Simulated scan of single mutants.
Amino acid sequence: MRGWARELGFSQIGVTGVDLSAAEPGLLAWLANGFHGEMAYMEHHGLKRARPAELVPGTASVITARMDYLPASTPPGWQDIEFERLRRGSEGVVSVYARGRDYHKVLRARLQKLSDRIAQRIGPFGHRVFTDSAPVLEAELAARSGQGWRGKHTLVLSREAGSTFFLGEIYVDVALPASEPVTHHCGTCEACIAACPTGAIVAPYRLDARRCISYLTIEHHGAIPEELRPLIGNRIYGCDDCQLACPWNKFAQRSPLPDFDERAGLSGRTLAELIGWSEADFLRLTEGSPIRRIGHERWLRNVAVAAGNALRQADDAALRAALQSVAAHPSALVREHVAWALAARPGA
């Protein structure tokens, strides 16, 4: 099975059982604190996340898979290069994982191919494929199956690959030998906590999504809280800071698949250019990208926040003109964030 997985672009697979009862108290406490923000589906699904056999009746084991996503052309010292992007205030920064093809599509198709190969060997079996698409405790399953350990930023960390990878699962009705979990290797390091721009990692292993820039720019539908806007900087889709600061990501692996290679137009563009994208431009330039899922309205909201932060660093006539061009946008959400950005002055 491991050979098949590698042929399909997976870096590692593991197996775990379905008893996740030890994770239930933590999940319930996280929900009770409201740390899931507007992600109401997490609350609606409740403990199904920690009970694979309830989510998919008959599940006896879970196969987990890891797929690295750094583009093949990623140079050494990539973390420093990404930090440098964040210092160029007039440039919009998209999270590394989102610069290529939508990972949901890539992983789902390849997990299904892996399932088909298993079926060819053992005969038909009940299974269901997941990748960040259902009430699944992905990180918990990955840690239990030996993919790595939970870092203090709550992501899964591997000694061989850092944290720059996607996770997927196959729920199967066949009892398989479980993989051995690995030990934790964060030690006293809290670089990820210190690096978080908004203080979203409120304690080791505890994330308040309501303050997380990835949540705010992707999952959150409404206005971004005004007190958090200056902390977002020029990040317009996602945030990599906790991963960039993590020492283990010096071992981050490059993907063998071209799917995650950086697409033209999603990196190195000025905010003035990006806010000038019409809805047709947005749909064309994000076709097949995970960015498309937020829609043009939230795209403009995010870029407007970054533009306001850029104008607080230095005035820019082209950027102000771009903002003025959408100041009367039909969306009240866009108008609010554009007005906030236009009110910005250097040093204010």
Rank of each mutant, 00 (worst) to 15 (best):
G9E: 10
G9V: 11
G9M: 12
G9I: 10
F10I: 05
S11K: 04
I13M: 07
T16N: 01
T16M: 00
P25W: 12
A29Y: 04
L31S: 08
N33T: 04
N33G: 15
G34L: 07
F35L: 04
E38M: 06
H44I: 12
A50S: 14
E54G: 03
V62F: 00
T64A: 07
D68C: 15
P71V: 10
A72M: 08
T74Q: 08
D80R: 13
I81H: 12
R88C: 02
S90H: 14
S95K: 03
V96E: 11
V96K: 14
Y97C: 12
R99E: 09
Y103V: 08
R110N: 13
R110Q: 13
S115E: 09
D116L: 12
I118K: 03
R121P: 02
R121S: 11
P124Y: 09
F125D: 04
G126Q: 12
T131E: 03
L141I: 11
L141V: 02
L141S: 00
L155M: 14
S163D: 06
F165V: 00
F165M: 04
F165S: 00
L167Q: 05
V172F: 00
V174S: 01
A175W: 06
A178N: 06
T183V: 12
E190R: 15
I193M: 15
T198Q: 10
Y205G: 03
R206L: 15
A209H: 01
R210N: 14
R210G: 15
R211C: 06
S214P: 07
H220V: 05
H221F: 11
L231C: 10
I232S: 04
A245E: 07
C246F: 09
N249Q: 10
Q253A: 14
L257S: 11
P258I: 10
P258D: 13
L266W: 06
S267Y: 11
L271W: 03
L271K: 00
A272S: 15
A272D: 01
L274P: 01
I275A: 02
G276V: 07
W277Q: 02
E279L: 08
E279G: 11
G288L: 08
I291R: 00
H296W: 15
E297R: 14
W299F: 15
N302I: 08
N302A: 04
A304L: 07
N309W: 09
A318W: 09
A321G: 10
A321Q: 15
A322Y: 03
A328S: 14
P330D: 05
P330C: 10
A332W: 08
V334Y: 05
H337P: 04
V338G: 02
A343Y: 05
P346H: 09
A348D: 14
